[in-house]
């Protein structure tokens, strides 16, 4: 199992946290589930420029799919995940419209409980209960604290 990236979007549709665990530039060996051809990782400048664009594209995708799912499945339905030939995207939305998105390889099973755990054990503990954290996280303020980042990194690396 490989986890590629993780995003948090707030209720104002802004990306307030993003983190990637991409394989190192050397030809990765652990991503054998992706097929025989492993695309070369993009250069550093390109990825830095496109990471905020990527977050916007991901938000647009999950927003549209969530609306589509609710239209077809009824108001109580919830969008869980989608899969392409290259990756799988997992989605979890809290009651306060906080959206957690995780991109993994295609063979991963449902990560909904993992996202739920991240929300309960990391977000609520280290961001919501932090007295110094603002109510709104403009530009990721308050989310990028050491405890949350460390906890998330440990938790995700424990899963891989």
């Amino acid at each position: 199992m490989a986890i590629y990236s993780f995003y948090i979007f707030d209720r104002h549709t802004e990306c307030i946290y993003s983190r990637t665990w991409l394989p190192p530039p050397a030809p990765p060996s652990q991503s054998s589930a992706d097929g025989p051809h492993i695309p070369p990782p993009q250069s550093q400048t390109l990825s830095a420029k496109s990471s905020s664009d990527n977050a916007k594209l991901i938000f647009g995708t999950v927003f549209s799919l969530r609306n589509m799912v609710r239209k077809l499945g009824g108001d109580d339905d919830a969008f869980i995940s989608f899969r392409t030939a290259q990756y799988k995207l997992h989605y979890y939305e809290t009651a306060s419209n906080l959206r957690l998105v995780m991109l993994t390889d295609t063979s991963t099973l449902s990560m909904r409980n993992v996202l739920h755990q991240i929300y309960i054990n990391l977000w609520v503990e280290y961001v919501v209960k932090n007295p110094l954290s603002p109510v709104e996280h403009k530009g990721g303020e308050g989310v990028r604290n050491e405890m949350f980042e460390m906890g998330l990194d440990q938790f995700v690396r424990g899963l891989m």
């Binding site: 590629y4 695309p39 549209s64 290259q86 990756y87």
Partner: peptide, 19 residues
């Protein structure tokens, strides 16, 4: 129409690299 657009975006979102 919406799905058609979303489908095009999802094809370009490959986290492992640029196509």
């Amino acid at each position: 129409g919406t799905f058609h657009g979303v489908h095009a975006i999802t094809a370009r979102l490959n986290p492992l690299g640029n196509h």
